[in-house]
Each structure stands twice: as C-alpha cells, then as structure tokens.
Amino acid sequence: MAWNEPGGNSNNQDPWGDRNKRGGQKEGPPDLDEALRKLQDNLKGVFGGKKKPGSKGSGGGFGLLAMVFAALAAMWLYTAVYSLDEQEQAVILRLGKYHETVGPGLNIYFPPMDRKFEQNVTRERAYTRQGPMLTEDENIIEVPLTVQYKISNLKDFVLNVDGPEVSLQQATESALRHVVGSTAMDQVLTEGREVLAIEVKERLQRFIDTYRTGITVTQVNVQNAQPPREVQESFDDVIRAREDEQREKNQAETYANGVIPEARGKAQRLREEANGYRDEIIARAQGEAERFSQLVAEYRKAPEVTRQRLYLETMQEVYSNSSKVLLTGDQGQNSLLYLPLDKMLEGRNATSQRPTDTSGSTVNSVPTSSNVSLSSDALSRDLRARGSR
C-alpha cells in the first residue's frame, strides 16, 4: 500500500522526511546537490586546494583566477601581435586618434585601446563600369571603362573618406561623362579613344586628389564603345551615310585637285605669254628708237643719200607685201595691165599640194612663176611698142 493512501503508512513515513527534518531547512533535489559537490571537489583537486576544518571555502580560488588571467593574457597576446609582409602597411588608431603607420615586419598594438587597419598598398586594383553616355553631337553610346589604381597613402585612405573606393567609382562616373559629353561620337568610336582615356585619367586623378582619398590612378582603359542595341540598325545607317558623304567629298576633292592645278597652269602660261609679249614690244620699241637715233645721225652727215636710201627701203617693203602689180609706159602716162599675182601664188601653192605621177611630173599643173615672169616681160614689150606707136 502506498504511503500516501488513506489508512496506510501509519508511521507517516515520507520518503523525503528525513532530509526535510535535517537542519530544519529544505534542500534541493539530491542529484543536483551531489553534482555540485562533486564538481567543487574536482576543482579543488585540480588546483591543489585543501579543505580546512570548520571553513566554508577553499584556498584553490586564487589558482583558478590565475589560470583565467593567464588564458586571457594569452588570447590578448595572440591578438595584439601581428606580422606584415612587404606589400602591406597598417594604420594604428589609439583611442580613436591616429597614432602611426607601421610597415612590414613583426608589430604589436594594444587592443581594445588601439585599432588596426591593414591593407595591401602595392597591389593593382581594378574597377570596371559601363553605361550609356551622351556625346557632344547628341548621340548615345555605350562606353566600357576599366580603372586600375592602388593605395598611395594609407592614412588618407583610412581616415579622410568613408568608403574611398565608392568615392572613386562616383568620381569615375563624373569624369567619364564630362569628357564624353565634350567629345564627338566619331572620336570616341575611332582614334579618339586613347585621347579620351588620357583625359579621363587626368580629370579623375584631380577629383580624388581633391577628396584626399589616398588613391593613385595608374591606368584608364577605354574599350570598344558601341551604340545601344536598341538603335544599332539606325546607327549603322548613319555610319553608312557618313561614309558615303566622305566618299563624295573625296571624289570632289580629287576632281578639284586635278582641275585647279590645270587652270592655274593655263593662267600662268597666259601671264608668261603676256610678259613675253610686253618684253618683246618694249625691246622692239627700244630698238626702233635706237635705230632712229642712229639714222638721224647719218642723215645729218649725208641728207640726200640717206633720203634716197630710206625711199628705196620703204618702197621695197611696201611692194614685197603687196600682191598687185601695175605696169605703166615709159612716160608713166598710160596704165596698161593689172596682173592678179595673188591668184597666181594661190594656184602655185595648190599645184605644190597636188599628187604626182610615177615620172615625178605634176598632174594638171598650172603656170609656174617663171612662166608668169615670161608673160609679164612679153606684155611689157607689147605695151612699150603700143606706147611708141
């Protein structure tokens, strides 16, 4: 019968009765107390503590504290001592204020009073961006850009700007848009990319130097720019139209380069001919003037002889240029005959141009000059005879 049933367990024996009566106070469950007691004994044995009679504590508490402090010191030392290689530097802040910049080697700092910011200052870093840009001639193109940079001043990189690499990206965006916005599309797509990259690098470096980010831009590469895919066909049509325009301009320039020098050559020839004619007229006039001066001197020496000579020369010059001959009598009173010598000369020239036969004689020849002379002599004699009669 159970102890707590009615009528049973007359001795009123409670399973925990003895423990409840001990010391007049209640204790916890026996298993928990026993476990705590065993743990305490084990700790005392580990730290070498001995239980003193009539004492409530143990002398091993100091050893436990020593072990705790030793463990904390080991952990702190492991955290405080650090090593930097040849490519790294570290900035130490003590109580939130800049303390020093340390270089390669074994170093130590004092956390939590000190804070350490460690970075690789020689490694080349790269940042790539791509986006639509508006050129100077109001065309939209996609410009992919790669920026290579490194940390030149770790103190400025850590302290001056919150997020220096984010500032670099924003400065790159601003510099690229400014340069592309002041450049024509043809230059961005063709040979102007190198100049574009140089201008972007210079402007970007000025921006980040103004911000004092501690970053140095080493290289800016502008890759092959392309128009947006949505307007690629229209863009190709524009390029073909510009190529046709350029081809027509080249053809026109080629024609002009051929015509203009020829016209200039003709103009130069006309100028040279005019100059030659001018020089000829001037020289002839000067010669005539000199001849007249000499003739005046001779005329003063012998007027009659000079006058007769001038008359003969003048008549010779006049008759040599005339194609008409007038024959007169001895007294010069009767005009007898007019000879068309100009027609005779034309007939002689036509005869010289006619074909010859195998024997070398002229076919259908006309009277020659000798025949004309003989006829003239005969006519002269006849006319004299008539005049005498």
Rank of each mutant, 00 (worst) to 15 (best):
Q148M: 12
S152P: 11
Q223L: 15
I140V: 13
M185I: 11
R177A: 03
T218V: 09
V231A: 13
E142I: 10
V121E: 00
G131L: 05
M133R: 08
G131N: 04
V222N: 01
V180R: 10
V217L: 03
A171T: 01
T218M: 06
V231W: 14
N139D: 02
R193H: 06
Q130H: 13
A171H: 01
E124C: 08
A175V: 10
Q130E: 15
V147E: 03
R177S: 03
Y149Q: 06
K155R: 15
K150D: 04
E199D: 09
V220C: 09
I151N: 08
V143A: 11
D137G: 10
A225K: 01
N153V: 08
D162Q: 05
V200S: 13
G214H: 09
L204R: 00
V222S: 04
D137V: 08
T146L: 02
D162C: 00
R125P: 01
A171N: 03
Q130V: 12
N120G: 02
R212W: 05
E142H: 03
A225G: 10
T122L: 13
K150Y: 08
Q219Y: 15
A197L: 07
G181A: 04
T213Q: 03
E138L: 02
N153P: 06
Q169H: 10
V217D: 00
V158L: 06
R203A: 10
E173W: 03
F157M: 04
K155W: 01
E142P: 02
R229C: 06
V180K: 13
G181C: 05
V179A: 09
H178S: 11
Q169L: 09
E142W: 05
D162E: 05
Y211C: 01
T183S: 11
Q232L: 05
K150T: 09
K201N: 12
S182R: 14
D186P: 05
T218L: 08
H178W: 07
M185Y: 10
V222G: 01
I141M: 04
G131W: 11
V161Y: 05
L196C: 03
M133T: 09
E124Q: 12
V180H: 13
V179Q: 14
R206E: 12
V220D: 11
A184G: 12
L154Q: 06
V166H: 09
E199W: 02
I208D: 01
R193M: 07
V217Q: 01
D162N: 07
Q148L: 15
E202T: 08
K201D: 07
V222W: 07
I215T: 00
V161K: 07
N221Y: 06
Q169T: 08
I141L: 10
A184F: 05
A175D: 04
Y127F: 13
N160T: 11
N160A: 09
I208Q: 06
L168I: 00
Q169N: 11
N120I: 01
E191L: 04
I215A: 02
A225S: 12
P132G: 04
R125V: 01
V161H: 05
Y127L: 14
S182I: 11
V195T: 12
E142Q: 14
V147T: 08
S152D: 13
